[in-house]
Amino acid sequence: MTNQEIIERIDRSIAEEFEIDPEGMTPEKTLFQDLGLDSLDIVDLVIVLETAFRFKIREDEGIRKIRTLGDIHAFVLQKKNELESIPR
């Protein structure tokens, strides 16, 4: 999957699972203020990302720093890179 495909997948999953209009989903949008999520949604956001990309986020410190949709893109891309760089 290319980075662009990953980003599209993230946006599509979040739009569907949180009933957000995909039109307004640009990277600088904040999750809480602009996209209307709240703290109760964070667990579901983690599960949506874990399910879409088949990795475990759980205790990942990076998740706490996420504020915007762009932060999620960067977080997932980095996570994918980390996992792919592990020799099998």
Binding site: E16, E17, F18, E19, D41, V43, D44, L45, I47
Partner: peptide, 8 residues
């Protein structure tokens, strides 16, 4: 509820 919560 949102779809994500319902699925969970």
């Amino acid at each position: 509820f949102r779809p994500a919560y319902k699925k969970r």
